[in-house]
């Protein structure tokens, strides 16, 4: 049990930090524009695909730099020529625009790279077990993922709180008009933040692609979970996003690793049931089975009891 817990914690940490790289950009973009970007996970997918294509020619390490930059530039362009145009039609139109964008990017990826899973691999240099515990290997690549995610978090925190640019961004989020009156180009700041946010999602894609497989549905798989995190953490809260990411990552990881279920609960309660009972499916549920729906359950509960999220201040 103990070794299972340790590995579940490590895997949960990897997933959680990866989710945070997506969630941090999403929540920054939300606090700026007041709109949740449905296409955020699509940029993550683009990151993985760009990195795959680049790594075919230049290898993994150049891809690690170039692919997120490309994704970020693309994101900035979409903000400048798409989202800004839709902005005047209101929030619903913006939300629907990003929704359509997510749809479009998925189709475009299928057009350029095909429907099949791509053989995008982690670099050979990281292809060794970092340590062996209770006979189980922990791959070095996962440690690398943790390292990158933490480095990004520290860098983001540093830039946002300690540099002049970060202070201007923070001011532009809360008081855009005042910042504009002080002579800063607020639309440019918005575009840059959108670009950096999508670039971060792209970076997450680059490092997650080899582990979570690179296929056209990868945005769908992660997209709604990232949404869940941002909402649970509280819209616009960076700290909330971190806590919620780790929470969801660990929760899912523990649920998958455990072998407990309703039968155990019923046994413990001393209740027995018949095999052909109509609710048989429910009585036989196990935790690994319901692991995929746990985040959504948590989301609905949080929204009912605390609509502003764990760390959130504003509600809509």
């Amino acid at each position: 049990m103990f070794e299972v817990m340790i590995f579940a914690t490590l895997n949960g940490l990897v997933t959680g930090l990866l989710l945070f790289m997506l969630a941090s950009g999403l929540t920054l973009i939300f606090s700026m524009m007041g709109v949740l970007n449905f296409a955020h996970a699509s940029f993550y997918m683009l990151g993985a695909y760009f990195a795959y294509s680049i790594s075919l020619y230049l290898g993994f390490w150049p891809a690690l730099i170039v692919a997120p930059v490309l994704v970020g530039v693309l994101g900035g362009l979409i903000e400048r020529y798409g989202l800004r145009r839709v902005h005047k039609s209101g929030h619903v139109a913006e939300l629907i625009f990003t929704f359509g964008l997510a749809f479009l990017i998925e189709e475009a990826v299928q057009f350029f790279w095909g429907r099949a899973t791509k053989d995008y691999r982690s670099p050979d240099i990281l292809d060794f077990p970092l340590f062996t515990l209770f006979g189980q290997n922990f791959p070095a690549y996962k440690a690398f993922m943790i390292f990158i995610s933490i480095a990004i978090f520290i860098a983001l925190y540093f830039v946002l709180t300690r540099t002049r640019i970060g202070i201007i961004i923070q001011a532009a989020i809360t008081h855009p008009h005042t910042v504009a009156n002080l002579g800063h180009n607020v639309p440019l700041i918005f575009m840059a933040v959108f670009g950096v946010g999508t670039g971060l999602a792209g970076l997450a894609g680059v490092i997650a692609g080899p582990v979570l497989t690179t296929f056209p549905g990868m945005a769908m798989v992660l997209g709604s979970i990232v949404f869940v995190i941002v909402v649970i953490g509280g819209l616009g809260s960076l700290a909330g996003a971190l806590v919620a990411s780790l929470l969801i990552g660990l929760l899912q990881s523990y649920a998958i690793a455990s072998d407990l279920g309703m039968p155990d609960l019923l046994n413990w309660l001393g209740v027995s049931f018949e095999r052909d009972h109509p609710l048989n499916d429910i009585w036989r549920l196990t935790l690994p089975q319901i692991a995929p729906i746990l985040p959504y359950l948590l989301l609905v509960l949080v929204l009912i009891f605390r609509p502003s999220g764990l760390f959130g201040k504003r509600e809509s």
């Binding site: 709604s224 549920l285 959504y296 359950l297 609905v300 509600e315």
Partner: peptide, 24 residues
């Protein structure tokens, strides 16, 4: 607004995922 949209998304995913679990 956003809260409603998010609940609808969550419920939608919840039921879609449950539909694969509740086989009967």
């Amino acid at each position: 607004g956003t809260v409603f949209a998010m609940i609808s998304l969550g419920v939608g995913e919840l039921i879609a995922a449950s539909s694969l679990i509740l086989v009967s």
